[in-house]
Every structure is written in structure tokens, then in C-alpha cells.
């Protein structure tokens, strides 16, 4: 049998493999040079970028928990113009070599998202945009953009109006009905959904008798969140017709296969990149081996397979 095909089709981009570096864990694409070659990935998603530079949260910013990692970086980034001037030019060879480059964008207001999208449209140099909805809306009393279908759809629609680039929307995980939010993003023009972002979490310093992280709360990632992520991906897949990118605690090929089986088209790896120097190779090789062992010649043949086998959403 020939080597199974693991190319995947996302709107506006064909990935050479379904493994994507998750935003915030792979910097601006060059930091890992010599350690984790970026060309291994089907795509890389750059760090959350805002209109103006941001300092981020005070340290400490990270804390390890059993099978988990809590981060409170607070969107430290040099701002969209610097990302275009200093970082994206260095990634054009990578794009030519066949790895897609996606920029993750974040903002405090709908206008800010819109302004960044306009700049992306004008300056190009990327293959798509991932919209981070897990940000507080400062004009609406700090309510998370991703927590409400109407606000989420406003953000997505405003980005959509400004750009022809593929728009992926990354959803906040702890909401009443994630399927409904995903659907409203689709109706507002999203090309794909990625889920899930980190879970809100805190750490207590019992010696100082206060919160440990400088930013107060943080986001939990790692294997600890995988079962929850799988369920939320299932709930999204049942409601939308656009592709879903699964994310949350993927450490190896088995974890990745689980996400594909609940309907994810591709997967993001974040915390898993810190765990081993071979995570990406292992996921890709393991995926190919699995497909061969179950006599499938294309990864699409296992996408959402649990629904053919009687699963329903919850």
C-alpha cells in the first residue's frame, strides 16, 4: 500500500500535514530555529498580535501543574507594524517551502480587530488570520468577546469585511453553548474554527497567601484539558459545516487521532512542543502508521468517524 495521504484542505490553504504550531508557543516563527524546524509543520500560528505593542503581564507568568501548564503572558507582543517589519519578512522562505504562516490577532475593541485585519489585507505576507476571541471587550465592561454569540459574530464580521484572507476563529472554551457561538462565527463569515483556547485557572501561593501569577489568573493547557477539549470540538463539529481545528493537550499521535476522529480537520500543538524535541515528528509519523494499520489511504477517512459509529453530541 502507498503511504497514506495526510494533506488536509482548509479554506484557502492546503496543508502538507495536519499539524499546526499553536499560537503563543512558537513565538514569531524563528525562535526555535535549530531546535524545532518550522518546516516540519503544516502551518505555524504566530503569537497573538495587537494593534499597538503590549508589555504583557508582570511575572511570574508560568506554573506547572499535574499534566498541565498555566500561563499568564498577557499578550506581550511588539504590535502589528513591528511584526510586519521585523518578523514576517523572515518567514517568506518558510512559506515558499510549503509551511503556511497564520497570524493570530487580538484586540480590546471591535475596531481594533478591524484595524489589524485591514493591515493584514494590505501588507499580505501571511496565509491566514486566526482571530483570538478570548480577550476582554473593554467597551463592554470587560466581557470576553468569545463568551457571547452576538459579540463574537460582530468581531468576526468586522474582520471578514476587511480581508479576503482565510479567517479562522479561536474560541474560548468555557461558555454555555460553544456550538452556538461557533455557528454564529460561521454565519458571520468565518472560514474555520479552532478550539479550544486555554481554560481559566489560578494558582495560590500559600507562603505569601496570595495569587501566584503576576497577572492574577492564567490559562491552563496540556494533557489535563484534553478530554474537555475533545468534547467541545465534538459539540462544534455537530453544529457547523466549516472545518474545525482541534487543540488542547495533544502530546502524541494518539491524541491527534482522537481529535480527528471527533471531527477535527487539523490539529494544533502548543504545550506539547515544550515536552519533547520530537513531538511533531512523532505525531506525523504515528498518524501515517495508524492510517496504514487500519488500511486507510487518506486522513479524511477517519475525520469525524465516531459520528458514523453512533456518537451524538451533548
Amino acid at each position: 500500500m502507498e503511504r497514506p495521504n495526510i494533506n488536509v484542505e482548509l479554506p484557502g490553504m492546503r496543508l502538507k500535514n495536519p499539524v499546526i504550531a499553536a499560537s503563543g508557543t512558537f513565538g514569531f516563527g524563528t525562535e526555535y530555529d535549530g531546535i524545532y524546524p518550522a518546516h516540519l509543520f503544516g502551518a505555524i500560528i504566530l503569537k497573538g498580535t495587537t494593534l499597538k505593542p503590549r508589555d504583557g503581564n508582570p511575572p511570574p507568568r508560568i506554573y506547572e501543574t499535574p499534566s498541565g501548564l498555566i500561563n499568564s503572558v498577557g499578550l506581550q507582543n511588539p504590535g502589528i507594524e513591528s511584526v510586519y517589519d521585523e518578523y514576517l519578512p523572515k518567514l517568506q522562505n518558510l512559506r515558499e517551502s510549503g509551511t503556511k504562516v497564520i497570524l493570530n490577532i487580538a484586540g480590546d475593541t471591535v475596531d481594533e480587530y478591524e484595524a489589524i485585519a485591514s493591515i493584514c489585507e494590505e501588507r499580505g505576507m501571511i496565509d491566514g488570520i486566526e482571530v483570538n476571541l478570548s480577550c476582554p471587550n473593554v467597551k463592554k465592561g470587560g466581557v470576553n468577546f468569545g463568551s457571547n454569540p452576538d459579540i463574537a459574530s460582530k468581531v468576526v464580521a468586522s474582520v471578514r469585511r476587511k480581508t479576503t484572507l482565510p479567517v479562522i476563529v479561536k474560541l474560548a472554551p468555557v461558555v454555555t453553548d460553544i456550538g452556538k457561538i461557533a455557528l454564529s462565527c460561521q454565519e458571520a463569515g468565518a472560514d474555520a474554527i479552532s478550539a479550544i483556547n486555554t481554560l481559566p485557572a489560578v494558582v495560590i501561593d500559600i507562603d505569601k497567601q496570595k495569587l501566584f501569577l503576576g497577572g492574577g489568573s492564567g490559562g491552563l493547557s496540556g494533557s489535563a484539558i484534553k478530554p474537555f477539549a475533545l468534547m467541545q470540538v465534538m459539540n462544534i463539529v455537530k453544529r457547523v459545516s466549516i472545518p474545525v481545528i482541534g487543540c488542547g493537550g495533544i502530546m502524541n499521535s494518539r491524541d491527534a487521532i482522537e481529535f480527528i476522529m471527533v471531527g477535527a480537520r487539523a490539529v494544533q500543538i502548543g504545550t506539547g512542543l515544550f515536552v519533547s524535541l520530537k513531538t511533531v515528528e512523532n505525531v506525523i509519523n504515528g498518524l501515517v502508521e495508524y492510517l496504514s494499520s487500519v488500511r486507510k489511504d487518506n486522513i479524511s477517512q477517519i475525520e469525524g468517524i465516531i459520528f458514523n459509529n453512533g456518537a451524538r453530541s451533548f
Binding site: 513565538g27 526555535y32 508560568i62 500561563n71 512542543l273 515544550f274
Partner: peptide, 21 residues
């Protein structure tokens, strides 16, 4: 500092300096 990546990608190990974090 507590660190994750060790190569400047995750920005987890910030030190407050006169030039910012």
C-alpha cells in the same frame, strides 16, 4: 526564572528591566 521553551518563544520567563520585560 520558571521557563518553558528556553528560546524566547513562549515569553514565560520575563524579567522586569529598564527596557521593559
Amino acid at each position: 526564572s520558571r521557563m518553558a521553551c528556553g528560546v524566547g518563544a513562549c515569553l514565560g520567563c520575563s524579567i522586569p528591566t529598564k527596557d521593559g520585560y
